[in-house]
Design a protein around this nucleic acid. Structure first.
Lengths: 339, 339
DNA sequence: GTGAAAGCGCTAACAG
DNA sequence: CTGTTAGCGCTTTCAC
C-alpha cells in the first residue's frame, strides 16, 4: 500500500529515482532500458526487475527532446463540409492508429480544406510530429507541396504524379476497368458514369478505368453519358434524368455518396433496380451494404490502406527506404443491383 | 537567400540563438514571448520583431517538458467493428480538433473497444496528453473509471451517473420524448421502438424518452413492441417482421444504423413508408437525409458537441472550473416518412 | 561494464 | 527591468 501510494502521490518515477535506489547511474539505467551500449547482464536484469515491479514508464516527451523526436505521426483529414461524414477517412485513421500503436508511436490529427492548410502548417511549425500521412490526394495538392518543402517524411494515401512522394493506394484504374468490363460483358449496352470532384485524383483514375474498359473491348463511350464533378444532389438528380431519357441500361457511380443519391432518385421516380436500370458503385461503404437490392461495388480494405501507410511512414522516420508506391488489393463484389 | 538557407539548413532557430544575436539572456527572450514577468517595452518589441523576421517557432515539446505539460489532448474513439463507420465520432473529432487548434492544443487519438482499454492506458502511461475526451459513454465505463483513478482531466461526450465526471451531451430523454409525443399526437396508435445496444447510456436514455412520452400522454407501451439490443441485421429483420404482424403504425429507431436496415427491410417486403408504416429515427446522419421518402429524425449538432467538449477540457487543464454537465441543443425535423 | 557531464529547448525561482 | 542558475527526464559522448 505504501508503495502504491508512493507511486500515485509523488509524480511519476524517473530514471533518476531508479538510479538512486539501485545505487547506479542514470546512464546505466538508460542503457538497461534501451538495450543500447554495453551493460552487464546482471545489472541489466536487476534494473529491469525494478522497472517491472515499480511500474516505471519512461517519459516519452523527455526522451523525444533528447533525441529531437516526438514519436508522433500526424494524420491530415479533410474538413471540407461535404467530406466530413465520409467513413473512408475514419477507417484510414483507424488503420493508422493501429499501425502507430504497435510501433510505439502516437497519432496526432489535424484538418485541412482544399484551400486552407494553416492547421497543417501549425502542426509542423510546432514540431509535434516526426512525419505525416496525407489521407487524400488532390490534383493540385497544397499539403503535399508544402510538406515536400519542409523535408519531413510524408506518406500519401492515394496517388500523385510526383514520384518522389511515397504513395499507398489501390489500383483504381485497374479495378474500375475490371468492374466496367464485367458489366459490359454481362450485356450492358449503354453505360453511364457519374463521377465526383475531378480535383481528386481518385475520381480521375476511376473515370480512366471506366474509359479503358470500353477501349479494351472496342466499345464506344457516349460522352453525354459521362458526368463529372457531381458534387451535389441537384447535379446528380439532373444527370440521372438525362441518363434515363437517353435510355442507359446501367449507371456506375464513382463513390457511395453519389450512389446513395442516385438510388434515392431512382426510387423516387419508380425506376426499378436492376430491372429498369442496373447500378454499381466504385466504392463501397456500410451504407450501401444494407440497401435493397444489394449494390454491386468495388471494395477495398481501407483500414489496411491506413495500416500500410502508418507502417511505411514510421519506417521512413527510422531511416529505412520504402517503395515509392504500394498497392492494396481490391475486390469486386457482384450483387443483385447488376443482375 | 542566405537567411532563408540558414533557417532551412541549420535546424530550427532557438531561444538561445535569439538571445545571442540580440545580446540578451534566454530568460528575457522567453519573457518577451510569453508576456509573463516584467520586461521593457522596447526590449520586448525588439525581440518580437526579430522573431517575426526570422520566423522563429518555439519548440512546444521543450516548453512542455519544462512545464510538465504536453499541450495535447487525447480523444478516445471506439474501435468496435460495428461502430467504426459511424459518422458521429468523426464529427465529434472534427469539433474537438477545431476547439483544440484555436486554443493552441493538438489532438492525439487512440482507440478502445468495449473490453480492451490497453491503448488508452498506453497513452496515459506515456504521458502524451494533458487530458482526455471520451466520445462515448457505456453503462459500465472502463475508460471513465480508469481515467478517474489517474486523476487526469476528463470530459465525457454523453452522460454518466457519476456526477464527478464532466459531461457534454444533448438531452436525449427530452428530445426522444418530444419526438415520440409529436408522433403520438399526430395520430399514431401503436408505436414500436427498435433500440440499440443497451450497454450504451445513450440508447437507454432514448428508450426512456420514448417511455416518458407515453406516460405523459397516458398511453400504454406495448412491451412486445419494444426491442432492445438490436445489434445486427438479423435481429432487426426479425423485429420488423413481428412489428408488422402485430400491426404497428409507426417504428421509431434509436439510431440511423438501425433505421437504414429497417428501411431496407420494409422496402424489400414492399411495406411502403409512410402509407403502411411510419418511420422516424432518434439520430440523423447524412445517409438518411438522401433517403426517399425523407426520414423524420432528431438532429443534434455533433460538431458543436465536440467543440464544447474540447473547450471544456482545455479549461479544466488550465485549472478553471467548468459545469459538470453541459447540454447542446437538439432539433426535431419532421419529414415525409411520418406524414 | 559503468559513470560523469553536457545538452535537447524552454521555464521559473531568485537575485541584482 | 534583466540576468543567473537550476532544473524538466532522458540520451549521449567521452573517460575510467
Amino acid at each position: 500500500m505504501k508503495e502504491i501510494n508512493k507511486q500515485n502521490a509523488s509524480k511519476n518515477i524517473t530514471i533518476g529515482d531508479i538510479a538512486e535506489e539501485l545505487g547506479l547511474s542514470k546512464t546505466t539505467i538508460s542503457r538497461a532500458i534501451s538495450g543500447k551500449g554495453r551493460i552487464g547482464t546482471d545489472t541489466k536484469q536487476k534494473v529491469q526487475e525494478y522497472i517491472k515491479e515499480h511500474n516505471y514508464k519512461p517519459n516519452v516527451i523527455a526522451k523525444g527532446l533528447a533525441q529531437s523526436k516526438t514519436y508522433n505521426i500526424g494524420v491530415i483529414l479533410p474538413a471540407d463540409a461535404n467530406l466530413i461524414e465520409i467513413p473512408f477517412f475514419q477507417s484510414c485513421l483507424m488503420g493508422i492508429c493501429e499501425a502507430a500503436a504497435s510501433l510505439d508511436y502516437d497519432v496526432v490529427v489535424t484538418t485541412v480544406t482544399e484551400d486552407d492548410i494553416t492547421l497543417l502548417k501549425r502542426l509542423i511549425d510546432n514540431q509535434k510530429v516526426d512525419g505525416v500521412v496525407l489521407t487524400r490526394s488532390l490534383v493540385n495538392d497544397m499539403p503535399a507541396k508544402y510538406l515536400k518543402e519542409t523535408g519531413i517524411p510524408v506518406v500519401l494515401i492515394g496517388s500523385n504524379e510526383d514520384e518522389t512522394i511515397i504513395q499507398i493506394d489501390s489500383n483504381h484504374i485497374a479495378g474500375c476497368c475490371e468492374l466496367t468490363s464485367i458489366l459490359l460483358k454481362s450485356g450492358c449496352e449503354q453505360m453511364a458514369l457519374l463521377a465526383g470532384n475531378q480535383n481528386h485524383n481518385v475520381n480521375r483514375n476511376r473515370c480512366e478505368g471506366f474509359m479503358k474498359a470500353h477501349r479494351d473491348l472496342n466499345r464506344n463511350v457516349d460522352d453525354a453519358m459521362v458526368f463529372k464533378d457531381m458534387n451535389n444532389k441537384l447535379l446528380i438528380h439532373k444527370a440521372v434524368n438525362q441518363i434515363m431519357e437517353r435510355g442507359a441500361d446501367c449507371i456506375v457511380c464513382s463513390d457511395d455518396f453519389i450512389c446513395s443519391i442516385v438510388l434515392a432518385k431512382l426510387e423516387e421516380e419508380n425506376w426499378s433496380v436492376p430491372e429498369k436500370i442496373k447500378v454499381a458503385s466504385f466504392y463501397n461503404s456500410a451504407g450501401l451494404a444494407s440497401h435493397n437490392p444489394p449494390i454491386t461495388a468495388l471494395t477495398i480494405n481501407v483500414k489496411e490502406l491506413g495500416i500500410t501507410a502508418g507502417q511505411h511512414l514510421i519506417k521512413m522516420i527510422s531511416g529505412e527506404i520504402v517503395d515509392h508506391k504500394s498497392l492494396v488489393n481490391y475486390e469486386i463484389v457482384l450483387k443483385r443491383s447488376t443482375n
